[in-house]
Design a protein around this nucleic acid. Structure first.
Length: 643
RNA sequence: GGCCCCGUCGUCUAGCCUGGUCCAGGACACAUCCCUUUCACGGAUGCGACAUGGGUUCGAAUCCCAUCGGGGUCACCA
């Protein structure tokens, strides 16, 4: 990184709109730009304050910071969106401000209320609570609400507001209706791009029609869009992360404000809503940087209908993008891609596997599977079922995916915080501080420490964080969370141990939970070391090489040890981890074995089929007396003749 | 292609603003060793980067320029 360091703009007492007038403003601007020569002098004043002295200015509680997260409800919450929400939330919390959730559902074809609800669930699950926005009940508390009366928070319900502003813009000749058809536009665009030019909307046609006639046609219901009369001057975006970004005159064209269906475009709705909702700081991904001059131009063109005041420009902070490890975009299509790859591989290996057969296996429509295989569609439903059919794992892209795979919200929040932000603090031992919780983030988040370089989403590191978070949980807590996870995703396992409710568990469950925990990075993975539980007591699949090595070698030494052990275990009074472990230890000592290996490995092969299992006390105790004895006896019987 | 942003270990990053303390620190991953009844956990050690080229300077990861590379964006999607 070679950028100059930015000083965070919103010193509490001057937080607010970037160009709102006020006594604190020049200081805010100057400090925000400290270190950037171009901005050292503001309003003709060189501000003598040093960073250090500014930092010591006391915080005023009446800080008016307002941030918002504004997803469009067209699917689940993307992990990148979760980071945006997290940072917006943290910034508001850090400054004692408000965090708004607004649903941008102006794309009528793709938006759904279910998606909106799912997004709220995911946010709440992550612990990102919104002060204003749609109401949502999470446990005992209700999130959202509208104390300042700035709602509604679904844009589709705000159309009358957008229309009023459109009217004003058109009446004041700052925007105009245009009657081109999509086909005409497409043709123009193609003509320009074919000769490698840059297409910009040509307003001459639309503006040649006299104003009165345009208004007439517009009001008479002729299909039209409304476009902004873009300014012919330079537009500067002041970004708290990237500094000033300049767009030369003529770069902006007359973009659409209102679509032919009467709904506002994203650009128009954001600007209106951010102003009306009093949003002071806009934190969003860098892909929006090039949208920002449009928003700034719009703000310059608009005045509030209620007060007549000009629109204010919020402080912008564009954060780096998050990519896959191979630097492709993290997209839900990755899931379809992975499932398709699994399907193709299977079809290549086995000629009997056809789309039709998969359709009947998975209960999907044949046409859907056919299309999916040919990449004609990227159905998530098909991806999920096909992956399940072939035991393939799909990449985690959305918060719901991580949730389903047994990640803890705390680990996700911690990991996400480090993607594009860093507290820049050292631990007493000199190592970087990188493990922290949401409360720490809320207390320490700052714009100035947002990075500029795009990040790769390293699932392996996330898994490590999650494993640590799992390990840090109190034993009880882990046991119940794992039970809850199994009840939902791995019911055969919980059923086998008689667990039907995460809060009322058996001792056997908790013994297993304890040993499984250090072996797992996720709740889903925790079931792996417990897989031996699921085996059929009467049909343990023995690993031949392990049998040879641990039971049959040295003239069946392991097997005879096993026979002896089985007799002793059968007589053991208390079938719990500690007594079992003591029994094994005593026997090792009595037999004069060099260590526990020969006995322990023999037992493992007998009860698990392989010489790998969690510690034996817990393994046998979790299995229970009956199953343990059955497995032991059966193994003895199976290999006695092989000696 | 136009415009815009970015460029420190494989990855996330600290350091950059205020040039020397940096033959660049941490974490994840990887390797080796120790611990050990297996698998894990844990502990120790190691491997590993300032994109390139100029310039400024006594001195540059840090300042300037160029080149190269990566990314974003150019919709009646958001």
């Amino acid at each position: 990184m070679s950028r100059t360091k930015r000083i965070e703009r919103p010193m509490p007492q001057v937080a607010g709109h970037a160009d709102s007038p006020g006594p604190g403003r020049c200081c805010a601007e100057a400090v925000a730009r400290e270190g950037r020569p171009t901005a050292r002098r503001v309003l003709g004043l060189t501000v003598p304050l040093t960073l250090r002295s500014m930092a010591s200015v006391p915080t005023t509680p009446a800080s008016p910071v307002v941030t918002r997260f504004a997803p469009s409800p067209t699917g689940h919450l993307h992990i990148g969106g979760a980071r945006t929400a997290l940072f917006c939330w943290a910034f508001a919390r850090r400054h004692g401000g408000k965090f708004i959730l607004r649903i941008e559902d102006t794309d009528r074809a793709r938006s759904s209320i279910e998606s909106a609800r799912g997004i709220m669930e995911d946010l709440a699950w992550l612990g990102i609570d919104w002060d204003e926005g749609p109401e949502f009940t999470a446990g005992a508390r209700t999130l959202g609400g509208d104390p300042r009366k700035v709602g509604p928070f679904f844009q589709a319900q705000r159309v009358h507001l957008y229309d009023a502003y459109i009217e004003w813009l058109v009446a004041n000749e700052r925007a105009y209706p245009a009657f081109d058809t999509p086909e005409e536009l497409e043709a123009q665009r193609k003509a320009v791009t074919d000769r490698k030019g840059t297409f910009r909307y040509d307003r001459t046609n639309a503006t040649r029609i006299p104003l009165a006639e345009r208004l007439d046609r517009m009001r008479s219901g002729t299909p039209h869009v409304v476009r902004l009369l873009a300014p012919r001057e330079e537009v500067v975006v002041r970004d708290s992360v990237l500094g000033d970004v300049r767009y030369a005159p003529g770069e902006l064209d007359d973009f659409v404000l209102r679509k032919a269906d009467g709904f506002p475009t994203y650009h128009f709705a954001v600007v209106i809503d951010d102003e009306l909702m009093g949003v002071t700081h806009v934190l969003r991904a860098q892909e929006h940087l090039n949208n920002t001059p449009r928003h700034v131009a719009l703000q310059h063109a608009l005045r509030r209908l209620d007060t007549g005041e000009p629109f204010r420009t919020p402080a912008y902070a564009h954060m780096p993008l998050i990519f896959n490890m191979d630097s492709t975009k993290m997209s839900k299509r990755d899931k379809a891609k992975a499932a398709r790859a699994a399907l193709k591989a299977a079809m290549a290996k086995d000629a009997s596997i056809t789309p039709a057969r998969i359709a009947s296996d998975t209960g999907l429509e044949a046409a859907l599977v056919e299309g999916f295989a040919k990449a004609d569609n990227d159905s998530l439903e098909a991806a999920a079922r096909i992956a399940a059919r072939f035991n393939a794992t799909l990449p985690e892209i959305e918060v719901a995916d991580f949730r389903a795979n047994g990640y803890l919200p705390a680990a996700i929040v911690n990991f996400l915080s480090l993607l594009g932000w860093n507290p820049g603090m050292k631990l007493p031992d000199g190592k970087d501080l990188e493990k922290f919780d949401a409360a720490f983030l809320a207390a320490n988040f700052s714009l100035e420490r947002i990075g500029t370089t795009n990040a790769r989403f390293d699932r392996v590191k996330l898994a490590s964080f999650n494993g640590d978070a799992l390990a840090a949980l109190p034993v009880e807590e882990f046991a119940s969370r794992w039970a809850a996870w199994c009840l939902e995703h791995q019911p055969t396992l919980s059923a086998k141990l008689g667990v039907t409710d995460a809060s009322v568990r058996s001792p056997r469950w908790d013994w297993l939970a304890q040993v499984v925990r250090v072996r797992a990075k996720t709740l889903a993975e925790a079931s792996r070391p417990a897989a031996f539980i699921l085996l059929d007591d009467h049909a343990i699949p023995f690993d031949r090489s392990h049998v040879d090595k641990h039971l049959l070698a040295s003239d069946g030494a392991g097997l005879s040890l096993l026979g002896d052990f089985a007799a002793r275990l059968g007589a053991l009074e208390s079938f719990e981890p500690a007594p079992i472990h003591a029994l094994i230890e005593a026997m090792v000592k009595e037999k004069g074995l060099p260590n526990m290996g020969p006995l322990a490995q023999a037992i493992r092969v007998a009860v698990a089929g392989v010489a790998v299992s969690p510690p034996l006390g817990e393994t046998l105790a979790a299995l229970g007396r009956e199953a343990s004895m059955t497995r032991l006896q059966r193994c003895l019987a199976a290999f006695s003749s092989a000696r």
